[in-house]
């Protein structure tokens, strides 16, 4: 290995996002290797390693739940934010903002609990709860981001002869993007955590080992589930960090 190649690989390893992804993948596929460690930590346990579904399969379901709910919430939230900042939707703005603010005072777990009697157990209540909750920060930040576009910029865009659609796509949304993304980041962060709790209502997620461990007085399961969820949360957060840097490159030029 030449010196330059070494530094390239080393530099890649020094990247926090790459490290976090690596740690997550190792946890997902290499967890069984830690069995002796957990056996030593909890010698009284018969089964010191969670062996229900593979962690990779649980993580896939977990991410599908988070991804689906976040996408739906992003679509709904951004559209709602757009609508109430257009002249024709302005009269609904107060209502939407009040709903978004009030909605976030409920803990996400409560939303989950309310969804069960409505649609029964399984992935459906989790999906509904996560989507509803994720809409709130997204709509709030979409409004804030669009409001933050300086008035003179809009004035000159109009004066220059840009059509409303072009002003929205080329000026307003790119300028609001970092703020909208911050809302999405909050929403997804909450969803990664809440999806784990969604195992209590029958959704298959990384929360399953934790719930099973808590019910069966098996702290090893709890730790294993928590480790993976934590690694996933870190990966997601760092990923958004990277995306935010990309979207606001011009600010640091």
């Amino acid at each position: 290995m030449t010196g330059r190649r070494f530094w390239q690989v080393f530099g890649l390893l020094a990247d926090r996002l790459v490290l976090a992804v690596l740690a997550l993948v190792l946890l997902l596929y290499g967890m069984p290797l830690l069995k002796p460690f957990f056996a030593a930590l909890y010698p009284t346990l018969d089964r010191p390693m969670y062996e229900g579904d593979g962690f990779a399969a649980l993580a896939a379901d977990h991410m599908a739940l988070v991804g689906l709910s976040s996408l739906a919430a992003a679509a709904a939230g951004v559209l709602a934010g757009l609508a109430v900042t257009r002249p024709w939707g302005a009269e609904f703005r107060g209502l939407v903002e009040a709903l978004a603010t009030a909605g976030q005072t409920f803990p996400p777990v409560a939303v989950l609990a309310v969804a069960v009697p409505a649609v029964g157990f399984g992935a459906a209540p989790a999906l509904i709860a996560l989507t509803l909750y994720a809409v709130l920060p997204i709509v709030q930040n979409t409004i804030a981001g669009l409001e933050g576009v300086p008035a003179p910029v809009l004035e000159s865009a109009r004066g220059m002869g840009m059509r409303p659609a072009a002003i929205l796509l080329r000026v307003e949304l790119p300028l609001a993007a970092p703020v909208i993304l911050a809302g999405l980041r909050t929403a997804v962060a909450i969803n990664v955590g809440t999806a784990a709790i969604a195992s209590t209502v029958g959704a298959k997620t990384l929360g399953l080992p934790i719930i099973v461990g808590l019910n069966g007085a098996n702290p090893a399961y709890v730790i294993q589930g928590a480790l993976v969820v934590a690694a996933l949360a870190v990966v997601v957060d760092l990923g958004f960090d990277r995306l935010a840097l990309l979207l606001s490159r011009w600010q640091r030029a």
């Binding site: 300086p150 809009l154 000159s156 865009a157």
Partner: peptide, 13 residues
């Protein structure tokens, strides 16, 4: 052409 006091350049361009 339209020029205003606060200039209104597109900050991301």
């Amino acid at each position: 052409g339209y020029v205003i006091q606060s200039v209104g350049l597109f900050p991301h361009w």
